[in-house]
Design a binder for these strands. Structure first.
Lengths: 205, 205
DNA sequence: CCCCTATGTTTACATTGTAAACATAGGGTT
DNA sequence: AACCCTATGTTTACAATGTAAACATAGGGG
């Protein structure tokens, strides 16, 4: 059991988590490019080799960050959807907004998650985490199709369109490749809603 | 005018282009992470500082690669569309297939183009290049809507859906986050066509 | 009480980006 | 033709980085 407050001690107590958190901060400041293991160590207040007791690699640390990102994103989506019970349309829209918002507000993490910068190594939990978002959408859509408020199409196909278009919107926004006005949060929101409605009704209302 | 064959000479003759080409190869082999200026120089057969006479930065070289990528992609899209004159539906489908194919077959370049790894610096031509793909799609869609073969919706909205969903599909494929079967090229093609039909007709036929 | 192991630290080294000082070649001016 | 100017390369130098190896320490189980 790690000691309560082990600051200044020889043994940090909970270095692994401290490193992940520190890595998040460093990533935020310096971006994926400028991200350095040594700086993470410095931020965590340990020597530059200490991280190697907890992560095989620089890549392994980034991978942990990535994993955490997927979990956060999944949570955000589910939370947003749960705010609108029994209303699949609103659920899908809110989930979509949450998805794009997460991306825009955590651009570096998002790049890390979806950019493919970190090689997916052998033991990755990739299937689990990447499928999460898709399955959340699929659940919502299934409900919508069953209760008849969505157009009557195979849920897998609707989910594919939803997943790809939301992801695309998010990535373009993160990359700064959407029209300038889309930098405005409300404009972006409207884009998301328009795309979501396309999924739901098949037309952009 | 650069000499014909200036191999082994003190002055390379056309180093700038040689560097860009070499950078492409290095990027392919080592990926965005392992990409090193010094290795590019080695591949081009010059000293490790020579690139600095042609590019301010490592980032500047990557930026040039990125730029070239955008041009290639734009060309691929236009070529694919031009193969089906007077048939907007086929045009959109072929353009979409070309888009995703380019991404899947040039994953590293694609990451470079859309990953945001390279900071978009002041003097970037970003507007031009990023808008290219979108405008190509928009042109096709405009034609389709006008001639009545597409659903009657504002072309901008259809283009938005097309652009985002194709981009999303491409990025997910590159990141290896689609279902396993999507690694099969034909399966991926079918996905693209399904998504394109959704844009055209509003339903997944 | 002792030592074993998990966790840190120090030292060392190769690689990298980049700057500064130096070299050369090849063309325009006289 | 001689000259030198500048564009283009090269060498040298340095600081930052990833990572391995050898060393240190603390805290718990025999």
């Amino acid at each position: 059991m790690p000691p309560e407050h082990a600051v200044g001690r020889y043994h940090h107590g909970d270095l692994r988590n401290a490193l992940i958190e520190g890595a998040g901060r460093v990533l935020l400041e310096k971006g994926t490019c400028g991200f350095s293991l040594r700086e993470v160590a410095k931020v965590a207040g340990v020597s530059h080799a200490a991280p190697y007791r907890h992560f095989r690699d620089k890549a392994a640390l980034l991978q942990a960050l990535r994993q955490a990102g997927f979990e956060q994103l999944g949570l955000a989506i589910r939370t947003a959807a749960d705010g609108k019970p029994h209303n699949p349309e609103q659920k899908l829209i809110e989930a979509s907004v949450a998805y794009v918002h997460f991306a825009v507000q955590n651009p570096e993490i998002t790049r890390l998650m979806f950019g493919g910068t970190v090689e997916l190594q052998e033991n990755d939990v990739r299937p689990d985490v990447s499928v999460t978002a898709y399955e959340s959408l699929l659940d919502i859509i299934q409900e919508g199709v069953e209760q008849g408020s969505f157009r009557q199409r195979p849920p897998q196909e609707l989910a594919l369109v939803a997943w790809t278009s939301m992801h695309g919107l998010a990535m373009l926004a993160v990359a700064g490749l959407l029209a300038v006005e889309a930098n405005d949060e409300r404009v972006l929101d409207e884009l998301v809603r328009a795309v979501a409605r396309n999924v739901i009704y098949g037309i952009v209302k």
